[in-house]
Simulated scan of single mutants.
Amino acid sequence: MHQRTVAKAVTYTGIGLHSGQDVTIIIKPAPPGTGIVFSRIDLPGKPQVAAIAGNVTNAMRATTLENGLAKVLTVEHLLAAFYALEIDNCLVEINAAEPPVADGSSLPFVKMIQEAGVVEQNVLRKLVTIEKTQIIRVNDKFITILPYDGFRITFTSINPHPMLGVQFGDYEITQDVFIREIAPARTIGFMHEVEALKAQGLALGGSLENAVVYDNEKALTPLRFEDELVRHKILDIIGDLALVGRIKGHVIAVKSSHALNTALAKEIVEHI
């Protein structure tokens, strides 16, 4: 139960999903107690923002962290990889506002951490143990967390698309399960949303290479899993709840989103 960090610095370059900008991230070792910290090295003074629930300022389509001039968005896929591979402390240097989308999943970030290697540190890890059920509900959507000896996520996705419908996933989140069953699941997008998203300045870097895209009838991208949508939703929850720390609890969600996930993260922090 000691804290862990990466063994060496590693670099990844790609484009941001929503910004469409070229971006490079460098993940570096950090001392015990640092947590996950993003440093905007493209800005004067290299301002930093910690990956904590209190720094969430927006959760529309992706999770945004902000502290003064330091702002980063779409951090959930990277944070999920850090969580699953048990990286407690890391400095993420980034030269734009958004990490690379890579292939739309967490798998490239898992491989990045594996390339860096992992080292234990001489400080014990703190564990957030859920002792009382907490719930966030908005209309027909909800996310709740219950006391549980482990970390488990149960998710029901309901989507009107004829190829999606109801999808159900229930996973005990371990490193092996995450790498095999969750990390490869990619972001889902729909052709009919593309123009509206781009008008909002979103999905500017989206393509068939970094998302599972559906038209009105079918998937235009070969699927990695028949239920890839619900697996990616679980991935998002892991990344969003990583803003709390390491959790012991059972998450149950129906049609949850980044907004509900991060609201629950803030609620958990308030109860600690």
Score class of each variant (00 low, 15 high):
residue 104 G to Y: 07
residue 180 R to E: 15
residue 226 E to H: 13
residue 246 R to T: 10
residue 139 N to S: 11
residue 270 E to I: 06
residue 83 Y to S: 09
residue 207 S to M: 04
residue 216 N to E: 14
residue 30 A to V: 01
residue 179 I to F: 00
residue 22 D to R: 12
residue 151 F to I: 07
residue 194 V to D: 02
residue 145 I to E: 02
residue 197 L to S: 09
residue 53 A to R: 02
residue 220 L to G: 05
residue 244 V to S: 02
residue 226 E to G: 02
residue 266 K to F: 08
residue 99 P to N: 11
residue 57 T to E: 05
residue 218 K to H: 08
residue 166 V to K: 13
residue 239 G to V: 01
residue 144 T to W: 09
residue 169 G to S: 05
residue 258 H to T: 12
residue 132 K to W: 00
residue 149 D to F: 00
residue 90 C to G: 00
residue 45 G to F: 13
residue 62 A to R: 14
residue 155 F to D: 00
residue 157 S to I: 03
residue 20 G to Y: 06
residue 163 M to L: 14
residue 1 M to P: 12
residue 89 N to E: 00
residue 133 T to A: 13
residue 54 G to L: 09
residue 223 L to K: 11
residue 73 L to W: 14
residue 175 Q to V: 11
residue 237 I to F: 11
residue 234 I to S: 00
residue 209 E to F: 14
residue 123 V to R: 14
residue 216 N to A: 04
residue 82 F to E: 03
residue 217 E to S: 12
residue 12 Y to A: 08
residue 122 N to R: 15
residue 86 E to G: 00
residue 162 P to I: 08
residue 204 L to G: 03
residue 131 E to S: 15
residue 71 K to Y: 08
residue 39 S to C: 15
residue 175 Q to G: 11
residue 188 I to K: 13
residue 152 R to S: 03
residue 60 M to Q: 11
residue 143 I to S: 06
residue 79 L to M: 13
residue 74 T to G: 10
residue 92 V to A: 02
residue 46 K to N: 15
residue 249 G to N: 02
residue 13 T to R: 14
residue 2 H to F: 01
residue 140 D to W: 02
residue 84 A to P: 10
residue 31 P to I: 07
residue 1 M to A: 07
residue 9 A to K: 15
residue 232 H to S: 06
residue 150 G to I: 00
residue 21 Q to H: 13
residue 47 P to T: 00
residue 21 Q to F: 08
residue 12 Y to M: 13
residue 272 I to M: 14
residue 9 A to N: 15
residue 28 K to N: 15
residue 126 K to T: 01
residue 83 Y to D: 02
residue 263 A to H: 02
residue 133 T to D: 09
residue 66 E to L: 06
residue 62 A to D: 10
residue 10 V to Y: 13
residue 194 V to A: 14
residue 117 G to M: 10
residue 141 K to Y: 01
residue 36 I to P: 06
residue 176 D to F: 01
residue 180 R to H: 13
residue 25 I to Y: 03
residue 260 L to H: 00
residue 19 S to V: 00
residue 215 D to C: 07
residue 233 K to N: 07
residue 42 D to W: 05
residue 46 K to H: 14
residue 207 S to T: 05
residue 101 V to F: 15
residue 72 V to N: 10
residue 52 I to N: 11
residue 247 I to K: 04
residue 173 I to F: 02
residue 102 A to D: 09
residue 113 I to P: 05
residue 246 R to L: 10
residue 190 F to N: 01
residue 116 A to Q: 05
residue 120 E to L: 05
residue 115 E to W: 05
residue 29 P to W: 13
residue 164 L to M: 03
residue 193 E to S: 01
residue 58 N to R: 07
residue 216 N to F: 07
residue 123 V to D: 05
residue 46 K to G: 12
residue 119 V to F: 12
residue 60 M to D: 11
residue 108 P to G: 13
residue 183 A to Q: 04
residue 203 A to Y: 03
residue 46 K to S: 15
residue 166 V to I: 13
residue 103 D to K: 08
residue 221 T to H: 10
